[in-house]
Design a protein around this nucleic acid. Structure first.
Length: 480
RNA sequence: CUGGCUGUGGCGCAGUUUGGUAGCGCGCUAGAAUGGGGUUCUAGAGGUCGCAGGUUCAAUUCCUGUCAGCCAGACCA
C-alpha cells in the first residue's frame, strides 16, 4: 500500500524540487486547461472555467452593488483609434494582433483585436456624453482580450485571456480617484474573502504603471515560490484619454470640460494565483468560495446494504445547499477517488460505507488539513457547512503565514541581493524615488518594485542602493 | 526574442547512435471478483512515429525547414 501511495505522489513534481514543473503538472493533471493548436491560446476546460464563473458571479455582484452596469464593446478596434493616446499605443503596439483582411479583401484600415478597451470605449463615450447631468458613467464589461505574448503559461500569461474591465467617467479628479480606490478595495476584498489570497495594495511606480495612466494601483500576492503576482489593477487615467478622444460635457457654468476617467480589471490570471497560493504536493486545494465542487460524496462498496441508496439520499438533500458531486462511478476504487478529488482540490469529502450505515454516520475529510472525522448522519449538512467555512478561513490564514514568512525587511544592498538570490520573497525597503535605482536593482537581481504600499512603515532614512534620502517604503519582488 | 530540452496509440515512455514501415506501462472496452487510501484476473481495441520537404531501393531513425510544448533568461500591467 505504501508503494501505491508513492506512485501517486510521483505524478506531480514536488514544489520544492521545481515549482514551475509542479505548476505545469498540476494544471495538466487536474484537467483545468488544454493547449490549443495556436501558441499561447489555451482551452479552459470545465473544471477551470467553473472557477472563473464563481469568481465572476461574486465580483459581478460587487460591481453592481457599487453602482456599475454591464455593457459589451466590440472586439475589433480601428488602428486610428488605438493611435490616439500616445503613451497607450506605445505601450501596447508591440503586442497587438491585427486583422488585415475581410474575406479576400484587404481592409483599407487594419483593425486590432483589443488588448484592452480604453480606446474603443472612449470613442463611444465621446458620442454619449453631453452634459454634467450624464455623469458619472459607470460601466463594466466581461470579455476576452488578446496580447501577442512571447512566452506564455496557462492562466498566468496567455495570449488570449478572459477578464473584466470597468471604465468610468467622473466630473472631478477626486471622484475619479475615490472610484479608483473603491474598486481596488473591491478587488482586495474579493482576493481575501473569496480566493483566500492575502494581498498588498498600493501604487505602482511610474516605471510599472499602465500605459496612459495618471496613476496605477495594484494588489500584489505572493506565491509559494516567493514570486509576486500582480493580481489586479485599478487606474486613475486622469484626463489623458478623455482629452485625446475629445470626450467633453457642458458643465453647470456653461463651459466645455473633459471628465476624469478610471479603468480597472482582473483576469483569469487569478486562477493561476489560486493554484500557486493554496496548492501543495497533492495538487490543488481550492477555497470553498470558488470550488466547482465544494463537497464530494464517495460511496464505499456501493452495492452493499443500501449504501448506494443512502449516498443518493444524502446527495439529494445536500445539493441545494452546496455545490455537490456524488461520485458513483463503479470503475474506480474508493482509494483512487480519494486521491483524485484531493488532487482536484475539493474542500470536503464525505465517505459513506457499510460500516458507517451500521452506526448512522459518515466520515468527513478536509482537504486543507487532511484531517478525517466521524459525523452522525443527521448532522452532516450542518457540519459540512461549518467545515467549508473553516476551510475558507484557514486557507487565508495559511496563505498569510506563508507570505509573512517570505517577507523581509532590508536596509542594505548586500542583504537585499543575498535574500533575492537565496530565498526570494517580498522585500520591504526604503526607496529614494529615483527610477535609476529601480532599474539598477532589476538588472542586478531581477526584482522590481511591486508597489508603494498604502500602509507605510518608516524603515530608515535612506535608499539602500544609493544612500540618498528616502521617504517611501516599497515592496520589491521578482514577478510573474 | 535568445539559449537548452522535447514531440512515437488517450497519458507517460523505450526504440533512432550502426535506416529495413513500431514496443512497454498506465488508461480504454468486455466479463468476473473486489471495494474504508490509486484492487485483481482473463480476453480485446487502439499508432504508423508533430508537419513539410530532401537524401536513399527503403526514413520513426540521416539532413533542412517549420509548428507546438517545457525549462531558464530578455520583454511585458
Amino acid at each position: 500500500m505504501a508503494k501505491k501511495q508513492k506512485q501517486f505522489v510521483e505524478e506531480i513534481t514536488p514544489m520544492e524540487t521545481d515549482f514551475a514543473q509542479w505548476y505545469t503538472d498540476v494544471i495538466k493533471k487536474t484537467d483545468m486547461v488544454d493547449y490549443s493548436p495556436v501558441k499561447g491560446f489555451m482551452v479552459i476546460k470545465h473544471y477551470g472555467y467553473a472557477i472563473w464563473e464563481n469568481i465572476q458571479a461574486y465580483m459581478d455582484k460587487r460591481f453592481k452593488e457599487t453602482g456599475h452596469k454591464n455593457c459589451y464593446f466590440p472586439l475589433l478596434i480601428p488602428e486610428s483609434l488605438l493611435q490616439k493616446e500616445a503613451e497607450h499605443v506605445e505601450g501596447f503596439a508591440p503586442e497587438v494582433a491585427w486583422v488585415t483582411h475581410g474575406g479576400d479583401e484587404e481592409l483599407a484600415e487594419r483593425l486590432c483585436i483589443r488588448p484592452t478597451s480604453e480606446t474603443i470605449i472612449c470613442a463611444m463615450y465621446s458620442k454619449w456624453l453631453n452634459s454634467y447631468r450624464d455623469l458619472p458613467f459607470m460601466y463594466n464589461q466581461w470579455c476576452n482580450v488578446v496580447r501577442w505574448e512571447k512566452s506564455t503559461r496557462p492562466f498566468l500569461r496567455t495570449s488570449e485571456f478572459l477578464w473584466q474591465e470597468g471604465h468610468t467617467l467622473h466630473e472631478t479628479y477626486d471622484e475619479a480617484q475615490s472610484e479608483t480606490l473603491q474598486m481596488l478595495n473591491v478587488y482586495k476584498e474579493t482576493a481575501e474573502n473569496l480566493l483566500a489570497i492575502p494581498v498588498i495594495i498600493g501604487q505602482k511606480t511610474d516605471r510599472e504603471k499602465f500605459a496612459g495612466a495618471y496613476a496605477t494601483y495594484t494588489m500584489e500576492a505572493l506565491m509559494h515560490d516567493g514570486k509576486a503576482l500582480q493580481a489586479g489593477t485599478s487606474h486613475n487615467l486622469g484626463q489623458h484619454f478623455t482629452k485625446a478622444f475629445d470626450i467633453e460635457y457642458l458643465d453647470r457654468d456653461g463651459t466645455l470640460k473633459n471628465p476624469y476617467h478610471t479603468s480597472w480589471g482582473v483576469s483569469t490570471r487569478l486562477i493561476g494565483g489560486i493554484i500557486m497560493v493554496h496548492g501543495d504536493n497533492r495538487g490543488l486545494s481550492l477555497p470553498p468560495g470558488i470550488a466547482p465542487i465544494q463537497a464530494v460524496i464517495v460511496p464505499i462498496a456501493a452495492h452493499k446494504g443500501g449504501v448506494n441508496e443512502a449516498a443518493q439520499e444524502l446527495y439529494a438533500e445536500m445539493k441545494s445547499l452546496y455545490r455537490m458531486e456524488l461520485d458513483d462511478r463503479d470503475q474506480y476504487s474508493p482509494g483512487w477517488k480519494f486521491n483524485e478529488w484531493e488532487m482536484k482540490g475539493v474542500p470536503v469529502r464525505i465517505e459513506i460505507g457499510p460500516r458507517d450505515l451500521e452506526q448512522n454516520q459518515v466520515v468527513l475529510f478536509r482537504r486543507d488539513t487532511l484531517e478525517k472525522e466521524v459525523c452522525p448522519l443527521d448532522q452532516v449538512k450542518e457540519r459540512v457547512g461549518l467545515l467549508l467555512e473553516e476551510t475558507q478561513k484557514n486557507l487565508l490564514v495559511k496563505a498569510r503565514e506563508m507570505r509573512d514568512q517570505k517577507t523581509y525587511t532590508v536596509q542594505d544592498e548586500a542583504e537585499f541581493k543575498r535574500i533575492m538570490k537565496e530565498s526570494p520573497g517580498f522585500i520591504k525597503a526604503m526607496w529614494c524615488g529615483d527610477e535609476a535605482c529601480e532599474e539598477k536593482i532589476k538588472t542586478e537581481t531581477g526584482a522590481t518594485i511591486r508597489c508603494i504600499p498604502f500602509e507605510q512603515e518608516k524603515l530608515g532614512d535612506t535608499c539602500p542602493f544609493c544612500n540618498k534620502p528616502a521617504d517611501k517604503m516599497v515592496y520589491y519582488a521578482k514577478a510573474y
